[in-house]
Amino acid sequence: MNTAFIVISLMNGISYGLLLFMLSAGLTLIFSMMGVLNFAHASFYMLGAYFAYSLMGVIGFWPALIIAPLAVGLIGALFERYSLRRVHRFGHVAELLITFGLSYLVLEVVQLLWGRAAVPYALPPALQGTLFTLYDIQFPKSRSFIMLVAVLMLVAVWLLLTRTRIGLIIQAALKNPEMVEALGHNVPRVFMFVFGGGAALAALAGAIAGNTYVTEPSMAAAVGSIIFVVVVVGGMGSLSGAFVASLLIGIVQTFAVALDISVATVLQPLGISVSPQIFGYALLSLTISQMAPILPYLFLVLILIFRPNGLLGTERG
């Protein structure tokens, strides 16, 4: 393992982690405020990618990067206003089911409109190519763009929450929505704004990840379970927890994917050879890269056992 590998893997990990944060930020805020675990959150991410792909052909990539998240945010806000709010009185199970239903609906609509195969959502010329090369390993511009957008988004959300009146109301409503409403603030509208904002952030992540990775109907499912891991590991409702957990999972997964080490390869220099005849060969010869996809879930289980409120979460009443 050389320095170049570590630096590039770290940057890839941070880039992926920041992308996860863009998705989980909205999810954790929505959960904290409304108590709703929004199963359709990753669907907004997918819609962002498809909307940006379609709009790019008409108005170009850069305007599409702004319009697509706004359009998805509007859909999210309308969904909250006319669907989620109506089932609110039936309790959280009904709310959970309706977001679950929406995720299937979005998936079917996407397949109907854009087909089951991946769409050719290409990077704009400005984001094609390599930003820098370190000992023959290239770091693409598109990944650095994800990092830039995520950091700008992080700063914008932080400024909104800490420096504006609406941010103050959101922070207070995260803890005690009934009291905020009794002070004369239209909390249902704040909920709609947060839900729409969360959907827009997810869509922004989709719009920039869709052409860096791939835009296809399975893209929501691919990140859907990971962002739930991020939110639980970080601590339900904790924005800073989501940030730490996103980076942690992003970096761990990226390094793991690149490590072709197994117990068998570690034992080999010690003179112990692991042959197919040995008991447990299948397990001993499993490489870390093969286990990479299950690492976040392993982490989730460990967190739930040893720190059920997450890394930075507080106990909920």
Partner: peptide, 27 residues
């Protein structure tokens, strides 16, 4: 709705105080 009633000019100080603990006094 509660916020509409509050805006009409009725203020409410609840039993268990319900301050926002993570915000400053001024906030």
């Amino acid at each position: 709705k509660p916020y509409e009633i509050a805006r009409m000019g009725i203020g409410y100080v609840p039993e268990n105080r319900e301050i926002f603990p993570n915000l400053t006094v001024h906030q």
